[in-house]
Each structure stands twice: as structure tokens, then as C-alpha cells.
């Protein structure tokens, strides 16, 4: 039976997913061993049940992220924080430094101060999910089994971790493989 793999994209730049695509020919090996059941590059709307492993890119920034993350945790055996935003909250969390009210400030800058046309806050439901008061790394919300730092994690690093997992050994990255940034 193939490993049921998912990838998810929270608050981040998609760079980690780009790096994943950099796996080049390894992707072909991978395709033989895994079934990609949910991903930004797969057209599946609902996160499925019984997922074996999920690579999580991005920090937890809004209520949609939060809700989906809890669902992922319930439906997934192994979670991997994939890249610095998931591991440390990274750049998305810079707004946390503004303290209380940082979410409002961010919206103000994005939709009003820097707007070239029709400056207005996106108030209607479903346009912008309500932002959390504080951007969080994934492991501050749910248990995470493995960490894959890097901004983005280079393809060989992803290959090393995924390769170990597929080989059934305890994944262990060492030294510069763990470099942030």
C-alpha cells in the first residue's frame, strides 16, 4: 500500500513547496511510493481521513489555518513542520512584535495605506479569514513529530527527511541540515 501523503500551505510564501518541486527526478521515485492525497498542487477540497504524513508549510496566522490544522492533526499520523514559517513562525510573525492590535495594523497597511485603488478593509465574510492575535509556529498549536527547518529547506534536505521516513527509520537531520534561514 502506498503512503498517503499530504502537503498544506498556511501563512508562508509557497517557497517550501517550490523547493519540494525542486526534488526533480526524486519526485518520480516518490510517486511510486506515495499517493498525494491533499496538496495545493492537487485539486482536493476536503482534507481526507487516514493520512499517513503531512508536510505543513507556513505559520498559523488566521482562524482558517487554525481550524484546518486541528483537522489535520486528527486525521494524520505524522506531522512535519516544513520550513521556517512552520517551525518558527518566521516572517509572518514579525507582526507579533507590534503587540496587541497588530492584526488591525497589518490590515490597515495592506488594504488602506498601500492601496492604490479603493482603499477599504475587507469586511465581508469569506474574503479574508479573521486574523489571529498572534501568529504561531505549528508546534505551539498541535503536536508535531518532525521538524524540517530552512527558508526554504533545500531539496536535498527534504529528500533526506522524506527518504528516511519512507525507509522506515527514525528521521534524523544533523548539523547544517538543520540550519534556519
Amino acid at each position: 500500500m502506498k503512503v498517503r501523503l499530504a502537503t498544506v500551505w498556511f501563512g508562508g510564501c509557497a517557497g517550501c513547496h517550490m523547493s519540494f518541486l525542486d526534488l526533480d527526478e526524486f519526485l518520480i521515485d516518490l510517486a511510486e511510493k506515495v499517493e498525494l492525497v491533499y496538496s495545493p498542487v492537487v485539486d482536493v477540497k476536503e482534507y481526507p481521513e487516514d493520512v499517513d504524513v503531512c508536510l505543513i508549510e507556513g505559520a498559523i496566522c488566521n482562524e482558517d489555518n487554525l481550524e484546518l490544522l486541528h483537522k489535520i492533526r486528527q486525521r494524520t499520523k505524522v506531522l512535519v513542520s516544513f520550513g521556517d514559517c512552520a517551525v518558527t513562525a518566521n516572517v509572518p510573525a514579525i507582526r507579533n512584535q507590534l503587540g496587541l492590535g497588530n492584526a488591525e495594523s497589518v490590515l490597515q497597511v495592506a488594504y488602506i495605506d498601500n492601496a492604490q485603488h479603493n482603499p477599504c478593509l475587507p469586511k465581508e465574510d469569506g474574503i479574508v479569514p479573521p486574523l489571529l492575535k498572534k501568529v504561531l509556529p505549528v508546534h505551539e498549536v498541535v503536536n508535531v513529530e518532525h521538524f524540517l527547518p530552512g527558508c526554504p529547506p533545500p531539496a536535498d534536505r527534504i529528500k533526506a527527511l522524506v527518504g528516511q521516513m519512507l525507509a522506515g527509520v527514525e528521521p534524523k537531520l544533523e548539523g547544517a541540515q538543520l540550519k534556519f534561514g
Partner: peptide, 22 residues
């Protein structure tokens, strides 16, 4: 700081980030 962190095997930070304003 960065190189010490990876050489000591720090793959994530278990403590809550303070996010101070500096």
C-alpha cells in the same frame, strides 16, 4: 548563533517566542 543552533541539533524552539518590540 545560527551555526551553534544547528550544531547542537536545535531543530525547533520549544518555548513560546516572546516577540518583543525592539
Amino acid at each position: 548563533l545560527q551555526s551553534l543552533a544547528y550544531n547542537q541539533g536545535m531543530d525547533h524552539v520549544r518555548y513560546e517566542y516572546n516577540f518583543p518590540k525592539w
